[in-house]
Structure formats: structure tokens, C-alpha cells
Amino acid sequence: MTSPLASLGAMLLAQIRGEVRMRWRLPAFSASNLVLPVVLYSFFGLPFAGQTGPRGLDIGVVLLTSFAAYAVGQVMVYGFGIGVAMERGQKIDLLMRATPLPPGVYLAAKIVVAMLFGLLAALILFAYATVVGGVRLAPGLWASVIGRLLAGSLPLIALGFAIGFVAGPNAAPAVVNLIYLPLAFASGLFLPPDRLPGFVQRVAPYLPTYHYAQLAWSAVGAGREPVSTSIAWLAGYTVVLLWLATRAYRRESKLKFG
């Protein structure tokens, strides 16, 4: 008699393969997550490539870092926000729940694939800026920026989950945009923070995306707070948003599977 259970590793691998195909084939993810950051960067970032700012900072590099934060953050918020809402709407969760697939494996696959897409989004952006804008930075620093953005994306994953469990499948794309775009703007991902309206500048330091950007900026010497402060804020937001997401998930589960 062989094992009464399928191997978790094989399940995870199959689940990852499926998630990658789904994301790749849905323009809501592939186009908006991989192409949109490049388009926005062309408008707001490219014109400043090669300029030197205060403290001798390479503005091209700082802006590229900002847009990378925007791109990776977007993969997380959109992927989980729209993705989870869509799966709820199509009742994909219903059949999955009746299979031996553990929820943890399902979740792990989603996170792994989001990380892969985040990495891909950042790499596309870096390649584009290097080739078209001539932005130059040591590979080690690029790696550090990407590593920080992936590791620091936990609160944004939690935010996505919270939206995905609260919003309906039709409302989710709008809700995600209405939350994420203002967050990105106010946190100085598109324009330098000091060019934003006064009240926005006062609110910004309380936003998760602000500290997310700081984490990436400090990798290239443009941070305005110690890394430990960024990490503390992001950890705090992770706890709060995960709590919200879990609450929404439990409420939904009780309704559908109670």
C-alpha cells in the first residue's frame, strides 16, 4: 500500500504551475502588472534619467526605484485583491475545498507566484530603463532593491487579501485602483514627495507604501528614515492588515462553509 496522501511538494509545484498560467493568460494581471509600470515610468521617470539631484543623488536611479516599488506593490495588491475576489465570484474555492489540497499549499503557491511576477515586473522595468534611459547601477544594488521590495511586500499581500475577501468580483478592480493609486501617489512613488501638496506630505509618513518605498530608496542611498523604522512600520501594517484579511476570510467562510 502506497502513501494515503499525495506529496505536498508535488501539489505545491502543480499549484504554482497552474497559478502562473492563470496570471499569464489574464490581461488584468499580465498587462497591467508587467506593462503598465513601464508605460508610467516612460512618462514620469524617463525624462529625469541622467539628472543629478540634491545630495548628489542620481535622480534616474531614485525614480526607477520608486517605479519598481510601484510595480512590485501592484503585483501584490492586484494579484490578491482582484484574484481572490474573482475566485470567490466564480466559486472556484468551493470545489477546491472538497479536494485534499490543503489551504496552506493553495496560499503558498499564490504567494510564490506573486513573488515571481513581482520579480519579473521589476526586471522588465530595470531592463527598459537601462536600455532606453541609460540608467546605470551596480547589479548588486539592483538585487538589493528587488530583494527588499519582495521581502517588504507582506503588508501589501495582506491588503490585497483584505480587499479580495470584502469586495465583489466586479467591484474589486475599481476598489484596488481607488486604494492603491492614491497610496502610490501620496507616498511619492510617481513624484518626489516634496512636490506633493502640503497635507499629502503630512499624511504620507503614516502610509504603508511610503515606508515600502523608503525601504527601497535606502538601498540606493535615498532613504529618509533608518531601515529599521521602515521595517517596523511595515511589520505593524502587516499585523493590522492580516488581522483585517483574516476577519474578512472567517466571516466569508462562516457564511459559505459554516
Binding site: P4, L5, A6, G18, R21, M22, R25, L26, E87, Q90, K91, I92, L94, L95, A98, T99, P100
Partner: peptide, 15 residues
């Protein structure tokens, strides 16, 4: 692991 199911109104990823 020893059970197969066909449910009403359940969905699968369409793509």
C-alpha cells in the same frame, strides 16, 4: 484523498 466530487455551481479557472 479517497473521495471524488462533482458539485453544483462550483467553478474552475476558465483560462
Amino acid at each position: 484523498s479517497r473521495v471524488g466530487v462533482m458539485l453544483q455551481e462550483s467553478g474552475v479557472p476558465g483560462v
